[in-house]
Computed example of a mutant assay.
Amino acid sequence: MTSGNAEDPADRGGSPGPGSDAASATDAPRAAETSDDGEEREPPRQQRSFWKELPLLIGIALVLALLIKTFLVQAFSIPSDSMQNTLQQGDRVLVDKLTPWFGSEPERGEVVVFNDPADWLIGEPTPEPNPVQRVLSWIGLMPSADEKDLIKRVVGVGGDTIECEGTGPLKVNGKALDESYVYAGNTPCSMDDHGGQFKVTVPEGKIWVMGDHRQNSLDSRYHQNDENQGFVPVDKVVGRAIVIAWPPTRWATLPVPDAFDQNLGAAAPGALGLAGAVPLVLWRRRRLLGAGDARNGRVTGSGTAR
Rank of each mutant, 00 (worst) to 15 (best):
I151T: 09
L136A: 12
D160Y: 04
A118P: 06
F114R: 01
I162A: 08
G159W: 00
G140C: 04
I139T: 00
W120P: 03
E110G: 02
V155P: 00
G140I: 03
P106Q: 02
E128D: 11
E128Q: 14
E147L: 12
T167A: 11
N130R: 05
A118E: 07
Q133P: 06
R108F: 06
V155K: 01
D149R: 11
V157P: 03
D149W: 12
E163Q: 11
N115I: 13
G159A: 02
G140R: 01
D119E: 10
S104W: 12
L121A: 14
V157W: 01
P125Y: 11
A145S: 15
V155N: 02
I122N: 15
V155G: 02
E110L: 05
C164K: 13
V112T: 06
D160A: 12
N115K: 14
S144F: 09
A118Q: 08
V135G: 10
V132R: 06
S104G: 12
D160K: 07
E110D: 08
T167R: 09
G159M: 03
L121F: 13
P169S: 03
S137Y: 00
P125K: 12
I151H: 08
P127F: 12
I139H: 02
L121R: 12
I122C: 07
N130P: 01
R108K: 10
I139M: 01
I122Q: 15
D116G: 06
V135W: 10
R153P: 01
W120R: 11
A118M: 05
S144N: 11
P129G: 00
I151N: 05
V111K: 06
P125D: 14
P117H: 04
D116S: 05
V111N: 07
P143G: 04
D160E: 09
K148M: 12
V132M: 07
L121Q: 15
L141V: 07
G158M: 03
P143K: 04
T167Q: 08
E147C: 06
E105Y: 03
L141D: 03
T167N: 13
T161Q: 14
E147Y: 14
P125R: 12
A118V: 01
R134C: 04
G168D: 08
I151A: 07
N115P: 06
G156E: 09
S144A: 13
I139P: 02
R134A: 09
D116P: 00
V113F: 02
P169W: 00
G159D: 02
V132I: 11
L121T: 15
V111H: 07
Q133L: 04
T161C: 08
P143Q: 06
N130E: 03
P106R: 05
I162Y: 06
T161M: 07
E107V: 11
I151D: 03
G158F: 10
P143H: 05
E105Q: 14
R108W: 07
V113Y: 02
G159L: 03
M142A: 15
E105W: 02
G109W: 01
K152Y: 09
M142C: 05
A145P: 13
F114L: 05
E163A: 00
E147K: 15
E165H: 10
K152C: 08
L121C: 08
L150Y: 14
W120F: 15
P125I: 11
L141S: 13
E147N: 13
G156Q: 08
V113W: 02
W120L: 05
V135T: 12
D146G: 14
D149Y: 11
D116H: 04
G166C: 03
V155L: 10
